[in-house]
Every structure is written in C-alpha cells, then in structure tokens.
Amino acid sequence: MSALTFKLKIKTDQRVDMSPLVCQLLKDKEFNDIAAITLQSGKARLRVDELFHISGSDTDNIVIENSFEKLDFIGKGLEEGSITVKGNAGAYLGLEMKSGTLDVEGNVGIFAACEMKKGLLTINGDAGDFLGGALIGNKQGMKGGTVVVKGNAGERVGDHMRRGMILIEGNAGDYCGSRMTAGTIAVMGTTGRYLGYAMRRGTLLLWNQPTLSATFNDCGSHTLAFLPLLFNSFKKLNSKFADATQAFNRVQRYGGDVAEMGRGEVLVKI
C-alpha cells in the first residue's frame, strides 16, 4: 500500500487550514470521501481534490507534496502514523500533536509544535517564532515529545514550555526558553538576547556561551550524571544530536531566572 499523497496543484492566495488531513481523521475513509473533504481557505471552503492531486491509500502514511508556507495547521492533533511534508509548511505545524511523526523538508512558520503533547517533529529547514510555545493567552506550551530543527529557530523558542525536548542544530533567536516551566531546549548554534527570560524551571543546554542577563547566576563547572542519559536518548534521531562526538557531560551551570522562581538552568558546554 503506497502512501496517501496530496500533491498541491496551485499555490493559493489565501492561507489553507490543513487540519482535517491527519491520519486518524482519514482512517477508513474511501478515496471519494477524502476528495470531498473541504478545507478552509480565507472565506472559501475548497474541496481537497480542487487543491491537490490525490494518490495512494495508506492513511497511516501521508505525504504532502509541493507544500508551501501558506499551508497552516499541518498535523494538528496528530494521534498516529506519519506525515511527510515536501516543501515548506505554514503556521501551527503539529499544533497539539499527540503522537506519531511529522517530518518537514523545508522551513516552517510560527507556532510550530505549539502545545505539542507527544511524538516526533523534524524540521529540516528553519522554524519561525514561538516554536514549541503556547498559543497567545494560554499558559502552557509544549507538554511532551521531541522537536528537531536542523536549521535555525526564531524568537521565543519554548515559550511557556512545560515538558519535552526541543533540539536545534542551528541558532535560536531572542527570548529562547522564555517563561519556561520545565523541559529541555538544546541549541548547538548561538542564542539571542534575553535567554531564559522569566524561566521558572527547565534546562537550556548550549554548545556556545550565551549573553546572559543579570538574573542568571553562575553556579560553577560541573560533571552532570544525567547528561550521558540525555545524549544516549538522542542516538535514535536522524540529527547531529545523535552524533556521539557532540555529547558532553561537563558544563558551566547558570541558575535562573532569579527574577522568577529561579529553578531553571542554563548549561553551557566547557
């Protein structure tokens, strides 16, 4: 059985809500039923077969081809199976994702992995702002799962993050880990200003020395026992993080944000 493939015919002017095209909602649906699903695009509702050439039938394995940055909500609430996006993706990629895998070939927009609960989301390009964050007004961001970004991430990575892991091979923008409640964000590249702004708990694991605000205090150099376990868990990933030569257990530990609860930490490789 080949993957259920949606090949985009036209790049719409308006953004498209792709949330109906997730594995669990398409399960047991006939080809004609899938073709007749309507997607919101601006004020209009468009049939799936108006927008996409449809082929294949394996609803556990969905491929979106010719994807571009106006396809929003791809993999929203995904509960099982896998979705592969060939091209870029719009905003809210993997919003409230509950399980399964989501793989994007290109770049993604804002609020990717927002309030994600479980599963694996891989972004081969860059990610926009609020990666793994909370929707505006909500108090809890990502609550579980793993996000791998092979490019750079925008501002406010892991805003209000509650649990889970965000692994960024490139750079992260300003306010990385802001208002974090728990979880782990690892950045191999550089980080911007206001790192860990108002973070309460959680870990920011960095390969490069950041510019820290005055509300982070140096706790000294340490060999931490949990780091080998953490790096060991990366081995199954298709990422630089799986490379054993990138692993370390000796870090400079900074505690903060003491303007908040102050139980968070920034660990910098030494």
Binding site: G144, A182, H222, L224, A225, F226, L229, L230, S233, R263
Partner: peptide, 21 residues
C-alpha cells in the same frame, strides 16, 4: 529537578559532591 528521558523520569537531587541521579 526532574528530567523525562525516553519516557523514564529521573530526579536530580543536589548533594555535596554534585548531583545524585
């Protein structure tokens, strides 16, 4: 502090020689 790694939760307890995991 705790860390959830591969669905197992670990506790890191600060002690005088570093951390007890």
């Amino acid at each position: 502090t705790s860390k959830l790694i591969d669905d197992k939760r670990y506790w890191r307890i600060p002690v005088m020689d570093g951390e007890f995991l």
